[in-house]
Design a protein around this nucleic acid. Structure first.
Lengths: 207, 207, 207, 207
DNA sequence: AATGAATGAGCCTTCATTCAT
DNA sequence: GATGAATGAAGGCTCATTCAT
C-alpha cells in the first residue's frame, strides 16, 4: 500500500469517526481527542489533515445521503402522494436508523439546534435544496390554490414532524423508555407522518 | 431599597441573563462569565447566588409559562378543537415571542437536542405533564377509536410542528431572511399548525 | 445585655468555632465561612472583629491550657520523675481529649506540620517556654553529666512520642480502626510514654 | 534524543518538582502552577502527564526508599538491636537528608498530619508494611513477655521520635537557628534515638 | 455596630492547537 | 509525512475580603 493510500485511509477513518462523535455529542460536545481515539489516529491528525475542528466538521457533512434520497425520489415513477410517502420514509431512515452508515443527516439535525460556524454551508448546500425539493412536492400535491406562504408552512409542518423524532429523542427516551428506533418502528413512524400530513394537505387542497 | 431587594434584583438579573444566554448558546455553549457580564455582576455571582452553573440552569427553568398555559386552557369553556387552537397559539407565543418575559420555553426547546444534567428534571416537571395534557386533548378530539400509540404519534406531530419554528430558527433565518416572529406572524403560524393538524385529526377520527 | 456584651459574645463564639475548625482542618483547610457558620455569625464577622483569617488564628492560640499545665506541674510537690509523669499525662490530655474545651494544643500540633504566618508567634509564646520547661525537668532527672545537646534530644524524644498520637491520628485510625482516645486510653498512652522515657533517661543518667 | 525520552524527562522533572513542592507546602498548599513552574513545564503539563493533581501526588509517592530500607535491613546479617540501629539511621536519612534524591518520605511525613484523598493508598502500601516490619523488629528485641499492645506503643514511640525531627522542623529551626540536618547531625540524631529507645526496650524486656 | 451581597484573584482542569522530532 | 509532547487560553468554581447599607 502506498503512503498516499495510508493517508487517505486515515482521513476516511477520521471523517467516519467525526460523524459518529458529532452526531452523538454535537459540535461543541465532541472533542478532537475522542474523534482521533475512535479513528485510532494521532491527536494532531485532525489539524494535520483538515486544519481545524471546524473544517473537519464541514468535511464530515457531505450530504450524499440527502442527495441520493432526492435522486431516488425523482426517479420513482409514482404519483406525488406516493413520492411524498417515499420521501418521508427515506428521510426518517436517514434520521433514525442507527445502522445507517451515513450519519450526516443526524449531524445536520443536531446542528439545527446548535448553530456553528459552518451552518451557512449546511443551509446552502443541503437544506436549501431539500426545502426546494420538498416545496415542489407539496406544490404538486396541493396545487397553486394554496399560497406560497402556506405551502411553505406545510413544508415546515412536514420537516417539523420528522425532525422531532431525532431532536427530541433524549426526551422521548425518558418518557417512553421502551421506544426503540428499529426498522419496524421507523416504518410505522414514517407512515403516521405521511398519513397525518397527506390528510392535512388534501384538506388544504380542497379547502 | 433594602439589602434583600438589592439581592433579589441581582438574582433576577442573573436569571434573566441566564435565560438569554442559555437559549442562545445552549447549556454547554453558555459561559458563566457571559451570563454575569450581561447581568452586570461579578464572575462569582452565579456561584454565590445559585451554587453552580447547573443550579442556575435549573432555576432559570421554572416552567411557570407552561403551567399557566395549561391552566388557562382548562379554564377556557370551549370545545376540544377550540382548546387545541388555543393551546397551539399560547404555546407558540411562549416559544417564539421574543418580547415574552419568560424565555424558559425557548431554553427548554434548545435543551431537547442537547441533554444536560438537568434534563431529567425538565422532563419530569414540565414535559411529561405537557405531553399528558396534550394527549388528553387529542383524545377528546379523536376518541378511542384511534389506538393509544397512534394518538401519541399525533401528539408528536403537533409538538414537532411547533418546536420546528424555534429549533430550526437559525436555518429559517438563513433561508428566509425576511422572516420575523412578530405577533401577526406567530398568530398565522399557530393558525396554520392548528388547521393542518385538525384536518389530520378529523381524518383519523372518521378514518 | 449591652451592645458591648453582645459583641464580646460574638467574638468568643468566633474564637471557639475557629479553634474547632482549625484543629479539624488545619489553617489552610479551614474556611472563614465554616467558622462563621458554626459561630452563627455573619461571613464578614471574622474580618470585622479580627481583621483577617490570620489574625483570628493568632487570637485563637492563647495557650492558656499549656500555661496552666506548667503552673500545675510546678505547684505539684513531687520528685522530678513524678512531675515528668504528670506533665506527660496532662499534655496528652490536652492533645488527645476531644472533650477538652481547649483545643489550642491540637491546633498547635497541626500547625507544626503546616507552618503559617503566625508560627513565629506560636514558637515564641508557647513552644519556646514549653521546651524550656521540659528541658529543665529533664535536667533535674539526668543531671549535668549529660550534655546539653543530648538533653535537648531527650526532650525531642519526649515531644516526638507525645505529638505522634495527635499528628499521626489519621494514619493510626486506618491501621487500627478500633483505636479511640477515651480517658482510659489516654492514661495508658501517657503511662507508656512515661515508662519508656524514664527508663531511657535513667540509663542516660547512669550511663 | 527520542521523543519518548523527552517525555520521560518532563515527567521526571514534574515528579521531582512535585515532591519538592508537596513536601514544602503539603497537598493543599501546593499548586499545580508552582510545580509546573519549577519543572519548567506548562500549566497543563500535570494534567497531560498524570491526569490530575491527585494522581501526580500518588505518582510522587512510590516509597521505593522505604522498601529499599526494609530490604537492606533484612539482608543485614546482624542481631536485632543492631538492625534497629540500622533501621533508625536509614529512616532518618530518608526523612532528613535534603540531598537525598527521594523526598517521598518527607512528603509522606507531611501527609500524616493532613489527610488527602490518597492517604488510604499511602497507609496500605507504605505505612502498614513499615509498621509491620518495625513491629517484628521490636518483637525480636523485647520478646513475647511484653503484650502486643505495649509492643505497638513502643513502635509508636520509635516512629514518634523519628518523625518529630521532620514534622517539627519549622519549629526547631526557629528555636535553634543553628540546626542543620547535615550527615553528621543526622547520624548523631539517629544514634540518640537508638540509644534512647534501646535503653527503654531493654528495660521493658527485663521489667 | 453589624450585615450579607458583591468582589476579584486564584485554583484545577479541559481543549484545540502547535511544534520539534 | 506523521507523531505525541507541549502549549496557553479559557472554563467552572472557591475563597478571603470589601463595601454599601
Amino acid at each position: 500500500m502506498t503512503e498516499a493510500q495510508v493517508c487517505e485511509q486515515t482521513r476516511t477513518r477520521l471523517v467516519e469517526a467525526a460523524r459518529e462523535v458529532f452526531s452523538e455529542c454535537g459540535f461543541q460536545g465532541a472533542t478532537v481527542r475522542e474523534i482521533c481515539r475512535r479513528a485510532e489516529a494521532n491527536v494532531a491528525a485532525v489539524n494535520y489533515h483538515f486544519g481545524s475542528k471546524d473544517e473537519l466538521f464541514a468535511e464530515a457533512l457531505n450530504f450524499s445521503g440527502l442527495k441520493a434520497l432526492q435522486r431516488a425520489n425523482v426517479a420513482a415513477d409514482a404519483c406525488p402522494e406516493k413520492r411524498l410517502r417515499l420521501f418521508i420514509r427515506d428521510f426518517m431512515l436517514l434520521l433514525l436508523d442507527e445502522n445507517n452508515a451515513t450519519s450526516q443527516c443526524r449531524m445536520m439535525a443536531r446542528e439545527l439546534a446548535e448553530p456553528t460556524p459552518v451552518l451557512d454551508k449546511i443551509v446552502t448546500e443541503a437544506i436549501a435544496p431539500l426545502h426546494e425539493f420538498l416545496g415542489h412536492l407539496v406544490f404538486e400535491i396541493v396545487g397553486d390554490k394554496v399560497s406560497e406562504t402556506e405551502r411553505r408552512r406545510c413544508m415546515f409542518s412536514l420537516f417539523g414532524q420528522c425532525l422531532f423524532y431525532r431532536n427530541s429523542y433524549p426526551v422521548l427516551q425518558r418518557l417512553h423508555p421502551e421506544l426503540r428506533y428499529d426498522l419496524d418502528e421507523i416504518e410505522a413512524i414514517a407512515q403516521h407522518i405521511a398519513d397525518f400530513s397527506l390528510a392535512a394537505l388534501r384538506a388544504k387542497k380542497s379547502g
